[in-house]
Amino acid sequence: MSAPLVLLHGWGLSSAVWAPLTTQLSSDLTIHTPDLPGHGAAPAAGETLTDWADALIPALPDGATVVGWSLGAQLALHLAAHAPHKVARLLLIAASPRFVQTDNWPTAIPVDTLTEFRQSFDLDPAATQRRFVALQALGDAARREVSATLTATLTPADANRQPALATGLRLLAETDQRPLVSRITQPVRLLHGSEDKLMPVAAAEWLADHLPNGRLSVFQHSGHAPFVSRPADCATLIESFIRD
């Protein structure tokens, strides 16, 4: 029997977003798809990435292959460094060690762009979520399918969920995982869409170069959610990585 498989989704969505992928994975895999704190059916957890990781840890099996997408990739990197008994292998989709630009990190979105996005979310969260879905689907050959799937699996930004979702945006703005990357010694596979308009491929290339055991696969004609637009291809890559 293979090691358990954990799938950590991205900001503003729920674990239901993994359905296109999980239907393509072998039935002999034990798959865990937790909701991130404050997303889906999960209760909110503190204000830091550590708080969010600590909230996830009790439900995660030991020795898992952990797949993290976008914000979920940030959490997966944190878990690999700080709870290595939980992470035997790491597969990162649309990942970046830092989501916003700095003087020494140009391979990200401008700070002002994410600041405006956060302000927009405070004023009109539903419209901001729709805009975020559009950005994730942009450039993908299966743009309509990606948009429909992401829209259907959004966590509603109601009064109960909006504070946790706003915290998630702040974590995207503030988190910088570059200092811990060299400490992650598990085998790591990176999967990135060539047309990702949120996270440039260069960010994944940097991770592949700086992770001790990192390797990158780029899916052509795919955007920020290649596991939605090309689930069979992603499933094949994941299963090959697990059994390598």
Rank of each mutant, 00 (worst) to 15 (best):
W18E: 12
P212I: 04
T149Q: 14
L60N: 11
P226G: 02
L77H: 07
R178Y: 07
P163A: 13
G193H: 02
P163M: 09
L150A: 07
D62N: 05
G193I: 03
G193W: 01
W69N: 03
L91M: 15
S70R: 02
H78A: 02
L91K: 03
A127L: 13
A73T: 03
A126G: 03
V17F: 01
P20L: 10
R230C: 05
R98P: 13
A44F: 07
L216V: 01
R161V: 03
H78L: 06
V87Q: 09
L172T: 03
D158W: 02
D51H: 13
T113C: 02
L36F: 04
F132D: 04
V201S: 08
R130W: 09
W206C: 12
P226T: 04
L138E: 15
D158S: 01
L5K: 08
A173F: 10
S182N: 13
A73D: 10
L92N: 01
A137T: 05
T65P: 03
W18P: 11
G168M: 09
V111Y: 04
H39L: 09
I238W: 01
W18C: 10
D103E: 15
V188G: 02
A3S: 14
S182P: 04
A225N: 07
A88W: 02
A173N: 09
A202S: 13
A64W: 02
V218K: 12
W52N: 01
S26M: 03
A45Y: 13
A55G: 04
V188R: 01
S15L: 05
C234N: 10
L60G: 06
D140F: 00
F117S: 03
I184V: 13
